[in-house]
Write a protein that binds this DNA or RNA. Structure first.
Lengths: 264, 264
DNA sequence: CGACTAGTTGAGGCCAGTCAATGTTGGTGG
DNA sequence: CCACCAACATTGACTGGCCTCAACTAGTCG
């Protein structure tokens, strides 16, 4: 039941949305031979964290599908039936919602090792849209199997809770940001946050390439793109960082941190 | 094990924080005789929703404690060990976090039938502070028992997921609000939201008493209290509502809705 | 090449914040 | 009961940060 033709069960969900191409949202299915949890580079950031060998094996076995998602392709859209979480193996995603006035607002910036799709859990439908910002790879975690597995694996359950609530607390700090910070503080906090996440993944924490346009960053931070552009320029003038399009090099992290915390 | 002295297991958590009085944060324990899920007025909004008789009985049995929380008393504080969720039976709570600059920001306004304490799930510690805005009553849902029960009750699990993710999506729409709405729109949306929730609870949806001060409302909406005050006055001048301190009467809901949606 | 997308920079206006004075409400104690 | 006080709320005048509109540059792709 799990062994043969495993892709059929949960994958079609995405297909009906794709109007023109047979491949939903530009996603390409891969053979399942390669990547597995035990040797995954972002294992320590993902669902398997702290699971013992046996538990990780059980989890790994229900992940039948690892797929690539090309830049600009959508992993899921609002209204799509929820039947899987996605673990980002490689690459970057943004999540967006569209306000009733029709314009998309960016609600999240997600890097390798993070789980997305959590917004679908509540109503069995996704509420966000997840779009790859570069060519990426995700593991598909079929929800009903995850849920079944979680029923008799307390450790997995705990990890699930943690993932879900980490997501919630991220949104909460975002609320704080949007509610009480100036434009400059918002950008600084964003950059420091991204830097930290690169560090967690073993990359340089002060030199990286942002995968979002100025407009997307602005939307994420509740600003306008011109403001973000100006801020980058002014931070550069002040010697806090060096910026070349989307490539950013933080030159003075301590001063950036102070710029964030020392007011009031 | 569950029958005798059931309060001892999870309750002390709140006590150590109370510096002076033996009663933590001003909370008074009640006898457990009265209220039970099956006859709870907010059952249909709470965890038991859609559970059959047997399931509700099992859930009800682990709720050993219903307590009153007096106005201004805190149900939990950031850093308190997480070991229970709280279902609001009666009354209103706000949740706040304190930004590193020391000032509290209101992150939630919670009414009867809602579950609070979810922010503690992830790290086994609460991250918010929950304060009663009027004398209130809550049911204490000991987390490890809830979790154990959820393990073999798929329906309860689904309800839990729903509650958690409803919380997350509330925060997400809050992000949207803070990121892209004018002050007037924010207040209108807030009022309409509160009105809807009163309706859900069987109360008048256009005449109610807000339990927050202008300052708390402002903090919640990412504004300043003077702005909120001015907005109330101007909405009143325009005949959209009538306001007397915290008592609000919505006079023209359709126009309020239009004020929110018709821009852009 | 032209068309398009992404980014930068400038000038001006407005919304909401800031500072400050005054009014209102509710609780407490004489 | 009233006087008093503190907390809450309202209103005004002013300011400044961010948005708006607009022009211009740089890079990419057909």
């Amino acid at each position: 039941m799990v062994g043969a033709a495993p892709h059929a069960g949960f994958w079609p969900s995405a297909v009906p949305v794709a109007a023109e191409t047979p491949q939903a949202h530009g996603i390409t299915a891969l053979d399942e031979l390669r990547a597995h949890c035990p040797n995954c580079p972002v294992r320590s950031l993902c669902l398997p964290v702290d699971l013992d060998e046996h538990a990780m094996g059980r989890l790994d076995r229900i992940i039948q599908l690892r797929t690539t998602v090309r830049r600009k392709a959508k992993l899921y859209r609002p209204g799509d039936r929820f039947n899987a979480l996605y673990a980002i193996r490689l690459g970057t995603f943004k999540t967006t919602v569209l306000a009733e006035d029709g314009c998309q607002q960016v609600t999240g910036y997600h890097m390798a090792g993070e789980i997305i799709g959590l917004d679908g859990i509540g109503d069995e439908r996704y509420t966000c849209e997840a779009t790859a910002l570069e060519d990426s790879e995700v593991c598909v975690l079929p929800w009903n199997e995850i849920d079944r597995l979680a029923a008799d694996m307390p450790e997995l359950r705990r990890n699930l809770y943690r993932v879900i609530s980490r997501d919630a607390s991220r949104e909460q700090s975002m609320m704080l940001l949007l509610g009480s910070r100036t434009a400059g503080e918002r950008l600084a906090i964003f950059l420091l946050n991204v830097a930290d996440r690169y560090r967690d993944r073993g990359y340089s924490s002060c030199e990286f390439v942002l995968r979002m346009t100025r407009e997307e960053i602005a939307s994420y931070l509740g600003l306008k793109l011109e403001t973000v552009s100006r801020l980058f320029s002014s931070l550069q003038e002040n010697g806090l960082l060096q910026v070349q399009g989307r490539a950013v090099k933080l030159l003075d992290v301590p001063r950036l941190r102070r710029a964030v915390s020392e007011r009031d």
